[in-house]
Structure formats: C-alpha cells, structure tokens
Design a protein around this nucleic acid. Structure first.
Lengths: 146, 146
DNA sequence: GGCCATTTGCAACTGGTTGTCATCTGGATC
DNA sequence: GATCCAGATGACAACCAGTTGCAAATGGCC
C-alpha cells in the first residue's frame, strides 16, 4: 500500500533536489506514472489524473511531460499514426514491437542490433545520438491449432 | 532532356493502366517526384510544384501523396519532430540515418539487422508487417584534423 | 465535341500540442 | 504560522500537419 508511494517519492525527491517545484498536479502525475507500466499517451494520463484530481488540466499534463522528458525522467515515443506515448525512464534502453491490432507495446532488447547500428553509423562517418527501432506486427496464430 | 520525361512516364503509364486518372496536377507532382532523390515533405513538393504550375493546391499534394502511397509508388517516413517526408519507392528496402544538424537523410541497408529483427519477432510470437529503423546522428569530425 | 464520374481549389475543420495570460501556490523567509 | 513572489496553473486561443465538404473544373471514354 505504501509501495507506490515510495516509488513516487524517489523521483519526487530527486526532482525536488534539482530545484523542481513539486506542485499538486505534478505530484498526481508522478504517482500515476510510477504506477504505470504500459505506454499511455498524454490524454490517457490526463484521464487517469482527472480521476484523482478533477481540476488538473490537459495543458499541465503536456507541460509536465515535457519537463520530465527534459529531465530524462521519462521517454517519449512517437509510434506511427498516433499521439506521443510515454514510459518512465530508468530501465535500460530497449526497442519496441507494436501490435498493430491492439496497440500493445512489447519491449525487447538486442545487443547485436545495437552493436550493428553503431558499426553502421561509424562506417557512414556519424556518431549516433539516439535511434529508433520499431517493429510493427501481428500476433502469429499457432499453425494447426484452431 | 527527355530523361526525366521518360522516368515520369513509366510510373504514369503504370498508374494509367491501373485506372488512375492522370490530371495535370498529378502529372506535375509525378514529374517532381521522379526528378527527386532527397526526401521532401508535402510542403516542399508543393513549393516545387508551384514553380511549374502555380495553381496547384497543397490539398492536392496531400491527396496525391496519399494516393501514391496506397498504390505503393512512394514511401512515407515520419521522422521525429517533423512532417512526413516522401521518397519514391522502387529501390529495395532500406533504413535511414538522419543528420540531426542538417536534416539530411542517408540510406543504408543491413541484411544482418533485417534478419535479427525477424528472429526477434518470431521469438516474441509475432509476424512483422513492417518496421522502422532510424539512426539520429551528427557527422563525426576527423580526429586530429582541423 | 459532349458527357459525367473524378478531381480540383478553397475554406473550414480536425487532433495533437503549444502559447498567452490572469490567477494561484509552493516553499523560502520572516 | 503568515508573507511573499517566481514559477506553475487552468482556461482557452492559436498552432501545425493533415483532412474534408463542396461547388466548379476536367480527364478521357463515347
């Protein structure tokens, strides 16, 4: 019951230490993000936040997302044909497989792909700042089974 | 001088055969695409088209891009933080390295990365419909020089 | 050349996001 | 605790890329 509370506070304390004002809306949003392990968009975060504090505005959600992104606390993903979706940072870097039928996002990581990317960039004379790898797919039905 | 003309006509004839009406605006846009080997966005195509036929509207450019995309004649790329950019299809599949300073796009292809992607998707129980791999980087300056 | 389904240009609209601004508030200071 | 004010907020207008409704124009088959 105090589990999430604790998680929230970690980030909260960190931000506070960095001189970021922790206002009520921000606290609410931080809590929601800490309780989340999907990839909600701004409106979905707004919806969840509204349930807790109905006075929160969508603008504030957007502003807070931008702030947190700049602080490196969350990552923004612009999957194709939709609004930006967010996830809290912290876990190691990974890429995404998006289920085109449900919108579900599956995270994966491949050291070999990462390494190949660096190699390619080096050959082309570039330093990679970041990259984006998204697979768009459909769940495979087991063959021979219903 | 008839070089581009020829290239345009190939696609034009192909579309015509498929029952697509080749109107003047479409002809102009097709010519521009055939003369292009960068990755212009809709507005840039509109700009170039306007120079040839000032009556063309941006709506028509968007509508034509959508049509050509559906016909598989061009590919649409939504690189981060900008409008969709297009390139004529035909060459084999490739990925992109975007120069974050200039916006230049460098195409590359890695069989090994392609293969790894398929492998990963298979392991996760998915069939890949398509994917997106973009590297964002900055040109490396030669060490010790300049 | 005539016909009519399609396409066009224009303007109004959309969805996601950012900007403006008057008001409010966190938290440092007393 | 009460005071204060830079910075944050909510309401809403503006923005941008892209889409759509509509009346007028046109491609291409007869």
């Amino acid at each position: 019951m105090t589990k999430h509370q604790t998680k929230t506070n970690e980030l909260e304390v960190e931000l506070r230490r960095a001189g970021v004002r922790i206002t009520r809306p921000r606290q609410t949003i931080l809590r929601i993000l800490s309780e989340t392990d999907d990839h909600p968009d701004a409106y979905e975060i707004f919806r969840r936040a509204s349930a807790v504090d109905s006075s929160i505005s969508l603008s504030t959600v957007y502003r807070t997302m931008k702030l947190l992104e700049q602080r490196g606390a969350i990552h923004r993903h612009a999957f194709e044909g939709g609004p930006s979706r967010f996830e809290h940072a912290g876990e190691e870097h990974h890429d995404h497989l998006i289920d085109v039928e449900t919108g579900d996002v599956i995270e994966f990581r491949s050291e070999r792909i990462e390494a190949l990317q660096d190699e390619i960039a080096r050959e082309l004379g570039y330093d990679i700042l970041h990259h984006r790898l998204e697979l768009y797919g459909r769940k495979r039905r087991a063959v021979g089974k219903r």
